[in-house]
């Protein structure tokens, strides 16, 4: 069980690191939001499931699942609100020059 949990946590850590690299590398707000959403969906899922597996069978698992459901409901809302505010205040999305 511990090996499975370590595998999940390492996979989650991979996605978190990739998202952090993306937040630094990508060119504008709209693309960076994609990187943050990568963290929010898969990174958090893998990390929290890994921690729940390490915890074993207990009522803490239910709480971890509740936090996960909360994250999955609220993160799209926050990302959408931010992006809509950015679009409405007149920011133009970055385009590749060749197109």
């Amino acid at each position: 069980m511990d090996i499975l949990s370590v595998l999940f946590i390492l996979a989650g850590l991979f996605f978190l690191i990739v998202a952090a690299i993306g937040v630094i590398r990508l060119p504008d707000v709209f693309s960076r939001a994609h990187a943050v959403s990568l963290t929010d969906s898969l990174g958090a899922f893998l990390m929290l499931v890994g921690l729940a597996l390490h915890e074993g069978l207990s009522k803490n698992n239910l709480k971890i699942i509740a936090v996960l459901a909360l994250l999955y409901i609220q993160n799209p809302v926050i990302t959408h609100a931010t992006i809509r505010a950015a679009l409405r205040s007149g920011l133009k999305p970055w385009r590749r020059e060749s197109s």
């Binding site: 960076r32 943050v36 990390m47 994250l71």
Partner: peptide, 12 residues
């Protein structure tokens, strides 16, 4: 956006 990412990571 960065603040939102920080808070997700703080939860983990």
């Amino acid at each position: 956006l960065g603040l939102n990412g920080i808070s997700t990571k703080a939860i983990i």
